[in-house]
Design a protein around this nucleic acid. Sequence first.
DNA 1: AATTAATACTTCTTTACAGGAATATTCCTC
DNA 2: GAGGAATATTCCTGTAAAGAAGTATTAATT
Lengths: 108, 108
Amino acid sequence: MKILLNSLAEPTRWNIVELLKKGPLAVGEIAEELGLRQPQVSKHLKVLSEAGIVAVHPIANRRVYQLNPEPFQELQEWAESYRHLWEERFDRLDDYLMKVEKRGEKEK
Amino acid sequence: MKILLNSLAEPTRWNIVELLKKGPLAVGEIAEELGLRQPQVSKHLKVLSEAGIVAVHPIANRRVYQLNPEPFQELQEWAESYRHLWEERFDRLDDYLMKVEKRGEKEK
DNA sequence: AATTAATACTTCTTTACAGGAATATTCCTC
DNA sequence: GAGGAATATTCCTGTAAAGAAGTATTAATT
């Protein structure tokens, strides 16, 4: 999960991912679309690939990159695990305050 | 969104967030729990705060930090926007291949 | 087989940022 | 208001990683 987040955090890689959201593209197309140099794109794609975010499909002498669905599903589930914050927010703070109070009494 | 991802990507900050998931905590408690020095914790909390991920509640001379729900909701929705990848995956690759074919013919 | 296009792999430089240590600030308590 | 916690800020150093430019590799076409 940390690797996943780290890979997506870099702005250029994020742009690549957002671009691939519309559909698979070859390296050169990505470079042109985003105004980047080809080597940088390849490097970023390597990172994304190692994080399992993209998959490669060699077609002739091109390499077509495509998004994998799994990481995004994983990310969604992780964010979803914070759903309880919606409701319990204030209760939690109150709980904490009461704990602090009690601890203060003990220490006296 | 980029700022949000970037803030969560850093391992220590991710640990802090995972810790705060269980409930609000003061700076010193976070430091102790994670075996970190107080200044680093404050620094990371500042980043998290500027990203809107945490909120502060000053209590006496302590500062209690708590997770904000919104960023996680936002993150979940963003990941959800990639849901179409689940189904359309192979269709998209086929589409791309057909586009490439057609383009090849044109250029001749 | 030679040439060319597309992509990956170096090497180098530079920048961003995390950690460490010391210091400053804030806010209680006496 | 002085002393002491708890927390924030500052300055420094080291390091990881992104960008640039050149080079190597792979594959297709003739």
